[in-house]
Nucleic acid binder design. Structure first.
Lengths: 117, 117
DNA sequence: CGATAATGATACGGATCCGAAACGATCAGA
DNA sequence: TCTGATCGTTTCGGATCCGTATCATTATCG
């Protein structure tokens, strides 16, 4: 079930999708923000600041700031953990789910357009 | 010759490669910088500031700044066009070619590890 | 020559991000 | 209770980036 892709195809796919993301006018996320967003939407909850920091190998303030930014964009939301009020649970949103879905469709579409390369 | 990939696979690939890029410690490039870098290394030269700005749909200072940053990282270099000294020709470098090659290998490797998803 | 156009770089104010350190709030255990 | 650990946030100085506007240099053409 492994995906068969050649290096030149991989690069063209990577370039084209990034071009689309830049041109779509949506606030383009940094690599870190992208990794955080997709981790939240692909991995099993619950997600915490500390957990995300560990998975990404970055410090906690990086996560806090990324959540601030993506929260303003409506891509994620935060909620105190009622069982341990030190924790913050990061939650998905409708807008975030839609954005992730759009990204998936974009990658799929651009990969279909790849030639033999 | 189209690449068969499902949305969930696309997202897992996107996430994993971004995780790798963040963790590799290399200065992670923005979406714009990535698009610029790959355009320089995939499209036929010569590349100019103006041409890149048009292809990306951004303003010229964005390109100038990105070239400053990537120049410091050794990923690209600049050279005056001797036939029209208003132009600046953006050139590839050995370090840049290596970085692009590493990115390609990373994508290929991670795509091989995808399950049926 | 002189006027106009084109190119890439720079100045500017504002926004964002970084890592390190410190902080307040909360929990756990003696 | 109270001491220490844990959690997420905030602060700090410094760096980067943004878009707009402007700049110096160079080319083009009358």
């Amino acid at each position: 079930m492994a995906l068969e892709i050649r290096p030149s195809q991989a690069l063209r796919l990577w370039r084209q999708v990034h071009l689309d993301l830049v041109q779509d006018g949506d606030a383009d996320l940094s690599a870190r923000q992208t990794a955080i967003l997709l981790t939240i939407y692909l991995e099993l909850p619950p997600h915490t600041v500390r957990g995300l920091a560990q998975q990404l190998g970055v410090t906690k303030p990086v996560i806090t700031r990324a959540l601030d930014t993506m929260g303003k964009l409506g891509l994620v939301s935060r909620k105190r953990d009622d069982f341990d009020r030190r924790n913050v649970i990061i939650q998905r949103t409708v807008a975030g789910a839609l954005a992730v879905e759009r990204l998936a469709d974009l990658i799929v579409q651009r990969s279909r357009e790849l030639g033999a390369g």
